[in-house]
Nucleic acid binder design. Structure first.
Length: 219
DNA sequence: GAGGAGATCGTCT
DNA sequence: GACGATCTCCTCT
């Protein structure tokens, strides 16, 4: 385990927002470099934050598993837009999944956020997930907050109506990505979860040994 | 702890 | 009309 400790509010506010250029690259590089970065949500005057510990790259027209593989539609239009924007979609009648667009306009590539380690506003996130945390929550209970694409979206209140197409590189946004200087140790690459096409490609990335990675524990 | 199946609805064909 | 980048509950071991 190399899970990072919770953050102070001043540390959160001091973390620089990731610039547009960060996302104007190929999603494999971005997926690797997003590990350890912070997803921050402003709710009224409060902040929620989670550290990215697991994500997946989707390679647009070169990737049969990607939503953009068959071309631009009303649903996936954000992926084909400028980099650094939120692509949120609804799946299985129950869940929202949260992605960020990558590459210049027209490519349809992106990164899916699969798991976060809660580091600020944990109680509010647990409330959003309808979880009850005891006074000294065990890691297994904290893990239920945001270890999975649907779970992290619920914890952060991310929906298609509210957040699709939102600019994640703007400090004026209520949802953005930031770098507080944390650097993960070893990164593992595995096949993506839940995909049936191009299922063998190692495009899922996670911080090795981190207890907040989704699915069965590994590393 | 592991495995299976149901829930539930937007999107595309 | 079929399917899906998931989660949770239930059963069995």
């Amino acid at each position: 385990m190399n899970d990072s400790a919770s953050l102070t509010l001043s540390a959160l506010r001091a973390a620089p927002v990731l610039p547009r250029e960060f996302f104007n690259r190929d999603p494999v590089t971005i997926a690797r470099e997003l590990l350890g970065k912070l997803l921050i949500r402003r709710v009224g005057r409060k902040l929620l934050a989670g550290r990215v510990v697991e994500d997946e790259a989707y390679l647009g027209a070169n990737d049969p598993a990607a939503h953009a593989y068959t071309g631009r539609t009303a649903r996936n239009a954000v992926l084909f837009g400028p980099p650094g924007h939120a692509y949120v979609y609804f799946i299985y009648g129950n869940h929202y999944c949260f992605n960020v667009s990558c590459m210049p306009e027209g490519y349809g590539e992106g990164v899916l956020f699969r798991a976060l380690e809660p580091v600020f506003g944990v109680e509010q996130m647990a409330l959003a997930r309808d979880l009850e945390l005891p006074d000294s929550p065990h890691a297994n209970q904290l893990r239920l907050i945001s270890s999975g694409p649907g779970r992290l979206s619920e914890a952060f209140g991310i929906t298609r109506m509210r957040d699709n197409a939102k600019d994640l590189t703007s400090a004026k946004s209520d949802l953005w990505l930031a770098d507080d200087g944390f650097r993960p140790g070893r990164i593992v690459a595995t096949p993506r979860i839940g995909v049936t096409k191009a299922a063998e490609r190692p495009l899922r990335f996670a911080i090795a040994g981190n207890g907040f990675v989704s699915g069965r524990r590994e590393g």
